[in-house]
Each structure stands twice: as C-alpha cells, then as structure tokens.
C-alpha cells in the first residue's frame, strides 16, 4: 500500500524520503484497513451463525444447485429470447436518441455554453442511477411487463452511450469541417460529411458495447417485474427449485458469453 516508498527507491533517494509523507501514507493505510474491518463487522451484524458457519453453509447450499435440471432448457429459452429482444430494442432506440444528445454535449459542436452544460449535467445525473432502480420506477409507472424494462434500459444506456460518443466527437479532427464551412456548407452538411465518417467506427463499437451491457442488465430486470428471464429465475428460487434455477443461470451465462464473443469479434474487425 505504501507505494511512495517504492517509487522513491526507483528514483534512488531512499534515505532522504520525507518522514511526513511516510506518516501520511501509514495513516491512510490504517484508515483504509480500519474502515474495511468496520464495514465487515457492520455488514455481518444481522448474520446468524457467524463467518465460519456461513462458509460451510455456502458449500451445502451450492451443492443443492447441482446437478442443474437440464430438462427445463426448452422452457427457459422463450423468456431468454424476450430478454435479448428487449436489449436489442432498447439499444436501437437509445442509439437513435443518443445522436442529438451526444452532439449537444460535445464542446466542439455545441458552442452555446448553457446548452452544453445543461445536457452534460442531465447525462451525468442519468448515469448515477442504477438500471434496476430505473426499472423499479418504470414498473411503478407502467405496471409489470417488458415495456418498463425496455424504458429502463433505454434511459440507462443513453447516459453511457451519449457520454462515450460525445467524447469521441470532441476528439475529432475539426479541420475538414472548417474546409466545408469555408465552401458554404451548412451545419447539417458539415456533420454528415465531416463528422460522421470520422466517428462512425467508434460509434458502432460503442453501440455494440452498450448492447452487451444491456443484455447483462436485462437478465436481471425480471427480478423487479420488468420482463425477461429474471422473472422465472425469481420464481424458481422462490419455490426453492434450485436445479431449475441453476439451469437458468447456466443459460444466462452461455448467452452472455456468446454475445460478448460475437460483439468482440465485430469490434476487432471495425477498428
């Protein structure tokens, strides 16, 4: 933890290292450890039986999940498909909505300071709210179903996507846009001809990344009634039907890994 020690060794000033800094590092180190121990105690307060009991208990419970009941795979697939469909729809809509938002929150395109800061702030706030909390609220508004799930995913991915893409836009070479302006092009033409070709590969890559995130997120949305496979996982766990639950978890695992693999391959080809 006391990294300054080692760094100083690297620059060959071992003995004249200021004792004050050393003391600071030590204090920070102990505060971190102390806070950790306190957190451990606090979080274990309501636990019955203590830590060692938990470990052996955990093993026993894990065993209950095995072997997974593979016969239910057929029944697991339709909700899994719904989950993927939700993620695809949400990503598509978020991608469309991102375009104006990303332009508005890119400093080199949006020259109006108030407009820029307003969009930035809204996006920053959006990003602080976890996806599932959004889902809870949308379920409250629309009732149980896939629609609140899709809406939660849209809002959640919008914050991330708009930020990533606005940063790409800010890193763009502005020279061609100046040349187009000098030849009488209007703003929309400048964006279509100068900006879009420069950001398109990154844009596609980020959209795929957000699709991955959305698939992961949509898997658990069902836990709060927002549609998809999470719902039946919750049911099976509620019935203590652990082998069935394990099958669901395995299907999720395989789907997430597969989509990650495909999306990685596409992204490698793009950049």
């Amino acid at each position: 933890m006391n990294n300054h020690d080692h760094r100083s060794a690297q620059v060959k000033t071992p003995s004249i290292y200021p004792t004050k800094t050393k003391a600071q590092i030590t204090i920070i180190f102990f505060i971190v450890i102390g806070f950790y121990l306190y957190s451990m105690v606090k979080t274990q307060q309501e636990m019955v039986g203590g830590f060692n009991n938990a470990i052996s208990n955990m093993w026993n419970v894990m065993l209950k999940f095995f072997p997974p009941n593979l016969e239910v795979i057929g029944a697991v697939w339709p909700p899994m498909a719904t989950t993927i469909q939700m993620a695809i729809i949400a990503t598509t809509i978020a991608t469309i909505l991102t375009i104006p938002l990303a332009l508005l929150s890119a400093q080199n395109i949006t020259t109006s300071k108030p407009l820029y800061y307003t969009t930035r702030t809204i996006l920053n706030i959006l990003r602080t709210i976890p996806d599932l909390v959004l889902a809870v609220i949308f379920v409250g508004l629309f009732g149980i179903g896939v629609l609140p799930g899709i809406l939660a995913l849209i809002v959640f991915s919008l914050g991330i996507l708009a930020k990533l893409i606005s940063e790409t836009i800010e890193a763009v070479d502005m020279n061609p846009l100046e040349a187009m302006r000098a030849s009488g092009a209007n703003s929309i033409q400048m964006i279509a001809y100068g900006l879009v070709p420069q950001v398109l590969p990154q844009f596609t890559s980020f959209v795929l990344y957000v699709l991955e995130l959305n698939i992961r997120a949509s898997v658990v949305l069902g836990l709060v009634g927002a549609g998809g496979i999470g719902l039946i996982l919750d049911q099976q766990l509620g019935f203590y039907n652990y082998p069935n639950a394990m099958t669901i978890i395995l299907v999720i695992f395989v789907v997430v890994l597969t989509i990650e693999y495909i999306s990685n391959k596409i992204r490698e080809a793009l950049i």
Partner: peptide
C-alpha cells in the same frame, strides 16, 4: 449468496 448466507448485508 443470499441463499447461502441468508438475507443480510454480508
């Protein structure tokens, strides 16, 4: 983990 160690923060 909730199944394993019960309904709590740990």
């Amino acid at each position: 983990f909730v199944v394993a160690v019960g309904v709590n923060a740990f």
